[in-house]
Simulated assay, not measured.
Amino acid sequence: MELKLLEDFLCLNDTRNFSRAAEVRNITQSTLSKRIRTLEHWVGATLVDRSSYPIELTPEGAAMVPQARELVSTFQGMRAGIRAFATPARNSIRIGALHTLRVTFLPQLRRHAEAELGPLMVENNGSSAAYAQTLRQFRNGETDVLLTYVHPSVANGLDSSGYDTLHMGHDRLVPVSAPDRDGSALHRLDTGGVVRFLSYGQSSFFAQALAPLLAERPMALNVAATNAMSLGLQSLAKVGCGVAWVPHSLAADDLASGELVPAAGPDWALDLEIRLFRHRRSCRPVTERFWAAAAGMAEAEAGRDAGLRALHHAG
């Protein structure tokens, strides 16, 4: 049994959607489906209930998730530890990134860097890695740079004495819901009633960022589902399961098409900063080159933001 089958299964559990999971895993939907069938044949049980949308796991599949995460984490940790002793290839850059940013922001950062530096061998941390694990891998030197969200409510321990940082952009965590027949939010936060809440759980980045907001504005929240991945909660929100806070960069297309609508006013959103970190010491030449390319991208983005603000004030 190959490790990639477990990684496919965990990604499918997180997204609850075959097409989205295939996109994240960078394979075709038919390949993903075949791999899940292969895994089911190997364990001797049906793991996915394909008759529901979003898909649900069978009891056997749900029981397998924590064991699969532990196995994948163990093997990835072993691989990363061994690679730390080896000399990486000259053009190989090891990037740690939060799951959402790996989908929304990292591709454009890579395109910009390769336009200046030529082809890069980019190694990403596993798609199932939790926020704490992603931070730990970076601090331990298992990744060269870290692409992450930053919010005042979430401590990351990356102080300025040991790390350099670049401001790469902004995002917003916005509450969204599927629309009702009139196009209004099916689930809203400001009705005063019980709200069906799609939760990030307790330990993910977004869970920590949301905690103060939810504490300041007590509501009757009925947790309808829990998933540490924003892609999974977005899929659940689209089929009417409740309210989810989703990064605007991820939900923009669904908001534009009307598949999702705001579940509250803008004062319920959280501003997020996108930052790139690197270790101040022991920077490899490829890391230096990648960092310079990223700095150029950040500078260009800052210039565009300044131009838009000037146009806004002039208007």
Rank of each mutant, 00 (worst) to 15 (best):
E7V: 03
F9V: 01
L10K: 05
L12E: 00
N13C: 12
D14T: 00
D14G: 03
T15G: 05
R16F: 00
R16G: 00
F18V: 04
A22N: 01
E23I: 06
N26I: 13
I27C: 15
T31K: 07
E40D: 10
H41N: 13
A45Q: 04
R50C: 03
P54T: 06
L57S: 06
L57C: 08
T58L: 07
R69P: 09
V72P: 01
G81C: 00
A84Q: 08
A84H: 08
T87Q: 15
P88I: 03
S92D: 10
T104C: 14
L106P: 00
P107K: 07
R111A: 15
E116S: 14
E116L: 09
E116N: 12
G126A: 15
A132T: 11
A132I: 10
F138C: 10
L147C: 02
S153D: 11
S153M: 13
A155F: 15
L158V: 00
S161P: 06
R172A: 14
L173A: 04
V176M: 00
V176L: 04
S184Y: 12
G192I: 10
G192M: 08
V194Q: 12
V194K: 12
F197P: 02
L198V: 04
A207S: 00
Q208Y: 00
L214R: 12
R217K: 07
M219I: 09
A225D: 11
T226D: 10
A228C: 02
S230A: 14
L231W: 11
L231E: 09
A237D: 04
V243G: 06
V243F: 00
V243E: 07
A244S: 03
A244L: 01
A244I: 00
P247N: 09
A269G: 08
L272Y: 10
E273A: 01
R275K: 13
R284Q: 03
P285V: 03
P285M: 05
T287C: 14
F290P: 01
A300E: 09
G303N: 08
G307K: 08
H312P: 08
A314S: 11
